[in-house]
Design a protein around this nucleic acid. Structure first.
Lengths: 224, 224
DNA sequence: TTTTAATAAAGAAATATTTCCTTATTAAAA
DNA sequence: TTTTAATAAGGAAATATTTCTTTATTAAAA
């Protein structure tokens, strides 16, 4: 199993990128189990992804398995972490210290995945009194001042839909490169800004549609 | 603009299904503004989706626009709500009354989108003392008893990764049709169970990859 | 040692999805 | 009324993604 720098300018499909963290999580659950290796069909059975898909996905990041054996679990975990940049720390601000905001601040996986939330903001001053993992909390009015002190890459939006665009504009104006939007509203932004919507409503739409169609879609598009 | 029953057995692409709630949210923000109609290019500009894509998406649900005018906003909102089943209520249980669980319980959009969380469960009895929107809270041991009283379609998992599979098994054993998994772990389930992962880690992977590549992908795959 | 069966690799094919191109429509301007 | 320009529709093309097929490899069994 290799995993060196990808010299060929292979285009990695976006769905592959989205599946990689899934493989990573799954491999963590089977690490320290009985076997050192796991095969593509072995992973496929659990994740309901087509085995060939898994082999292809790994091949995009230059991972080769061994015939009759599969992939060495710990080594693969390491390669995935390198590829996904889990060791490259990106700083983030979060705006919105409601339940969702707090849940995200407390979401420990981020520590292992190379994102650190270094400050939180809210409109409501009362929210700033809370202690959440000792995170620095500020009124939204201090956003500019704080970001000038420590530039960040990622701005997380965890405010109600009606305030989301305003917060996005503030982030963009102050040099945030990527906006992670947890609100229900799609955001308007210039093309050079990276926008990632974790759209709860899209997920619910999928669930309701599948329930209605009663076609649970084996393999295809199952996981993401 | 029509929107009647889709008699042709058109296959609607899954990405289209995922985009529909986005159009819906966006249309809500422009409703009651100056114009009665909105054109595909008008939507495209804001959502960074290719205008032709928008026209195609609408055509899948039999919505036709008017040349030089576009789509009638309020009518389109109504059609989207009908298609997405926002008026068909699906009952749900949520397991895990942590911050994420509470955030989901308080997420008001669900009321308009046809899902009602009717009970919450946790392993920790202390959590059951909280009052969150007057939701009935139970110890996880009472899951079977409660679901026998009121069968539900959707089970929401908002517990830490290490407990997720165990909860999923419990849900499956008791007849839950669809599992909405907010945990970091992918779940193992029979093929007839609908699994929807709202994978925070996949989203982060996309953000980090785009930041690294520094290619913010205009239009393509931008929104979802 | 030889055979067998499980598996990965690689390319081809199939499928799915998006984008383009042409045509038709129509509101607004001339 | 006629012309113009903006727009949607519909089919074709291009692109992206997944799945299949064949071949090669190799661990384990005979």
């Amino acid at each position: 199993m290799t995993g060196e720098k990808n010299n060929k300018t292979t285009i990695i499909p976006i769905p592959t990128i989205r599946r990689l963290p899934l493989y990573h999580s799954f491999l963590l659950t089977v690490r320290d189990k009985e076997n050192i290796h796991i095969s593509a069909p072995g992973i496929a059975k659990e994740l309901h992804i087509h085995p060939t898909q898994i082999i292809k996905d790994f091949s995009y990041i230059n991972v080769k398995g061994r015939t009759k054996v599969g992939y060495e679990i710990k080594g693969l975990i390491k390669i995935l972490e390198d590829f996904l940049g889990y060791h490259i720390l990106r700083k983030a601000f979060i705006v919105g210290i409601g339940n969702l905001g707090i849940a995200l601040i407390k979401y420990h996986e981020f520590n292992n995945e190379g994102m650190e939330i270094i400050a939180g903001f809210d409109i409501d001053s009362d929210k700033l009194e809370t202690n959440i993992n000792n995170l620095e909390l500020f009124h939204i009015n201090n956003f500019k001042e704080r970001i000038n002190k420590t530039p960040i890459d990622i701005g997380i939006i965890a405010v109600p839909a009606c305030q989301a665009q305003e917060i996005a504009d503030l982030m963009i104006k102050n040099g945030v490169k990527a906006i992670w939007n947890f609100s229900a509203t799609p955001l308007s932004a210039p093309d050079n800004i990276i926008i990632e919507n974790t759209s709860i409503d899209s997920s619910l739409a999928m669930i309701k549609w599948k329930l209605h169609e009663n076609k649970p879609l084996i393999y295809k598009n199952r996981v993401l």
